[in-house]
Amino acid sequence: MQNKEAIFKAVYTQAKEKVYRLCLGFTGNRADADDLLQEIFVKVWNNLENFRHESNIQTWIYRIATNTALLYVTRRDRQKQRVNEFEQNASVLHIDDNQQEQEQQINRLYEAINVLKKIDRIIISLLLDDCSYSEIADITGLSATNVGVKISRIKKVLFKKMNDGSIN
């Protein structure tokens, strides 16, 4: 148990920020990102004994994180269908006039990512976190060529949304 805790602590310290950024990009709001982060690390904890050290720990964590995120957002979308749309949109990251310019740009980026298709959100989040095409392919199950094609398409959509302010 002590060993498990020590390994978990190391993994958490190393990965928490990367995983949280992925959560923010994927959910588009802090409340969901916090819940999702917790859900992901519960799974990391439960699966820690299954981790085979010959594979890359980063890929291992990203697989857990992205799979959990897919399921989390699917459940949330399902609830969204039931609950008033207006209430749900209220929780999306808002740009406060008093925030610094850079903070506003970051929020705009998260909002732009949040309107992409779910798999595309994962791809761009992984790319922004410096993952290679082959790592992204390994995590998503797409071919590296397909990842490349998707990335060029995602970039166009992302920049268009960030520049013309057509988010939401």
Binding site: E5, F8, K9, Y12, T13, K16, E17, Y20, R21, L24, G25, L37, Q38, F41, V42, W45, Q102, Q105, I106, L109, L127, L128, D129, D130, K155, L158, F159
Partner: peptide, 27 residues
């Protein structure tokens, strides 16, 4: 360059997360 500028933004985000010990107790 365009992706690099987005990556800089992405990494610039500062986050405050619970510490590992608290999380381990809950887990």
């Amino acid at each position: 360059q365009s992706i690099k500028s987005l990556q800089e933004l992405w990494h610039h985000k500062k986050v405050h997360l619970p510490d590992a010990d608290m999380l381990i107790t809950k887990l």
